[in-house]
Amino acid sequence: MTIFDIFTNQLLNGIVLGSFYALVALGYTMVFGVVKLLNFAHGELYMVGGFAGFLVLSFLAPFIGAGWFGVAVSMVFAMIAIGFLGVVIERVAYAPMLSAPRLSILITALAVSLVLQNGMLALTKGQYVPFGSALGFGGINLGKLFISYNQMILVSVAALLMLALEMFVSRTQYGRAMRAVAVDKDMSRLMGINVNAVIAVTFFLGSALAAAAGTMAGAFYGSLWYFMGFLIGLKAFTAAVIGGIGSIPGAMLGGLILGLLESFATQLDLRGMGIPFKVGSEWKDVFSFSVLILILVFKPTGLLGKSEQERM
């Protein structure tokens, strides 16, 4: 393999990984933009979404198969179910806390995430659950680069979902209301916007996107685990921060950047140049978390975020 082959390969891996990060990061950023809450439970919605997709697929597979069509249909059902789960979580756990001190609401969010995580631990006994999709292994060769159809479909679906979200936020009335609430909640209420409905829609969309990512990840990687939301939750938050939290294009960009950074970092090895530095796969998470800390320290507003002087 030449340097160029490695480069294109990692580029592809980075884009696939980045699509997952971006989908999950969008939920973080939207919720943060509208209610200024860091939803710790968001990564768990990705995990529960994966399991929901799996459940639907195991019911539907005898009728429509477990190929991409079956997975896509299951994904839609999972998105709706987890979207409502997100709304319920907001109503039950967050809404009563929005005026409480910062520390209380952060701990509540953590508690919600633990409930989801440990609930799934109890249901699955901590075992990996095979997703049971049959996606096939076809693909096309571009020179030495092999792109599987799965990778292509996955990235296109992610892109389509993000495009749809962008259209929703920029073109529809609800999208406009969402942007207004993000700027000033009280003023929006005075202008006749139903703020609670906007918050519900925001949670619904964010959670649905996480569920889409969870179902696709389950189908793509072939298995589910109760703890799989933890790491991606942290990574997606990193992505949202890189792009500038609160900014929707920022979350997409941040996801892609983090995916690429990570897949290139696994190849980073300076030992040939006499520098004892190698990231490799065992250090890649350390690498991502370090990126998170560095960005928060040096540019907490991210690439596309607005600077706001606000202390909570």
Binding site: L37, L38, F40, R102, L103, L106, L234, F237, T238, V241, E282, W283, D285, V286, F289, S290, L292, I293, L296, V297, P300, E310, R311, M312
Partner: peptide
């Protein structure tokens, strides 16, 4: 570096830091 951050950022930075130490 992190104590200047807002409280929810701090929470997630400490989470990341804990994972860095364990890894």
């Amino acid at each position: 570096p992190t104590l200047r951050l807002r409280s929810d950022y701090l929470a997630i930075v400490t989470l990341g830091f804990g994972e860095i130490v364990r890894l």
